[in-house]
């Protein structure tokens, strides 16, 4: 298949050791656009937009940052944020750098935890990319929607 120069660069940056240690694709062999489309369909089923999810994730991140590295009890959820030194670019290649912030959100009700980075929030909002299956920071849209109790029943 013919690929534009941008596309070619794109795939390289998603590989291990380029921006993060194990890359963004995990063991997913699908094309980046197919992953985005498949995850987008899950959101559609629940009548949610990318920005809805990203806003909610940002909210938790901002609450967590206030307590520096400690745990923050938000009633139904417990949030903890780790902030490491340095900045990283987005693999989609637009200019700008993102701080290395990792957020843990634990739901007391379901006893489940999700983990995401500030970069994942950006990628969900801007590109609809939730990570390749099996990658370290992959968020499963359905898990996130259930944990954050967003959207309707879906089906």
């Amino acid at each position: 298949m013919k690929q534009t120069p941008g596309e070619q660069q794109l795939e390289i940056r998603f590989r291990p050791g380029q921006i993060t240690k194990s890359g963004f694709m995990g063991d997913d062999t699908r094309h980046i656009h197919d992953i985005i489309e498949a995850d987008g369909k899950v959101l559609e089923r629940f009548g949610l937009k990318k920005a809805d999810i990203a806003d909610r994730l940002t909210l938790f991140m901002d609450e967590g940052k206030k307590e520096l590295e400690g745990k923050v009890d938000l009633g139904e959820y417990v949030v903890q944020v780790h902030w490491a030194r340095g900045l990283m670019p987005c693999p989609f290649g637009e200019p700008g750098l993102h701080p290395k912030v990792v957020v843990h959100v634990f739901s007391k009700a379901s006893r489940q935890e999700i983990r995401y980075s500030q970069l994942s929030v950006h990628m969900i909002r801007k590109h609809g990319f939730w990570g390749g299956k099996g990658s370290v920071f992959r968020l499963e849209p359905i898990d996130v929607i259930r944990l954050l109790k967003m959207g309707g029943n879906g089906e």
Binding site: Q3, T4, P5
Partner: peptide, 13 residues
Amino acid sequence: YINLGIFLPLITV
């Protein structure tokens, strides 16, 4: 050269 990118070698096909 940068603007044409991959389309330059792709003139071949």
